[in-house]
Amino acid sequence: MDRKLNNRNQEIVDVLPNIRRFAASLTGNLADADDLLQSTVERLLAKGLPADVEVLPWCLRVCRNLWFDEVRARKVRADASREPAVIGEQVLQGEDQVIGEMTLAEVQGVLRSMSDDQRAVLELVAVEGFSYKDAASVLDIPVGTVMSRLARARSTLMERSGIAGARST
């Protein structure tokens, strides 16, 4: 970008990748994530960033509220007759790219099978490195719910992608 941004806009630019990944966890695919990202930025610019907030959690809360309160219902209706795309589909064309013990296709497939609630908490904690408390604040759920959803998401990912170690009791 060749134009100098004002400070508040620059703060949003600095967290755009984080908002975008979080949006992808909610929508499950990049095209819808970019629509949600655009709506989020519009809302942030319209309402302004309060001076005393941490920028990233604030932006993610705006994104989350837009998704659950406005966008998801519309999208579910629109998608009722078609199969949605998956995270990473636009980039990752191979079926057998290996990440550790799993292939990307396996990871994609399992994430696709999860609910947006589970994907979102997994993204915040495992990808963005949020504490449970901060993830709970962004998602507006109790910390205990973060823990249980996270455990379910991770268990699902392990079981369905065939990397599960022996379960401990």
Binding site: P17, R20, R21, A24, S25, L30, A33, I87, G88, V91, L92, I99, G100, E101, M102, L104, V107, Q108, L111, L122, E123, A126, V127, R154, L157, M158, S161, I163
Partner: peptide
């Protein structure tokens, strides 16, 4: 490993 794979998948979106 599950977390690592998830991070790599999401990181791919950044490109």
């Amino acid at each position: 490993a599950a977390d690592g794979a998830t991070r790599k998948l999401y990181a791919s979106l950044d490109a």
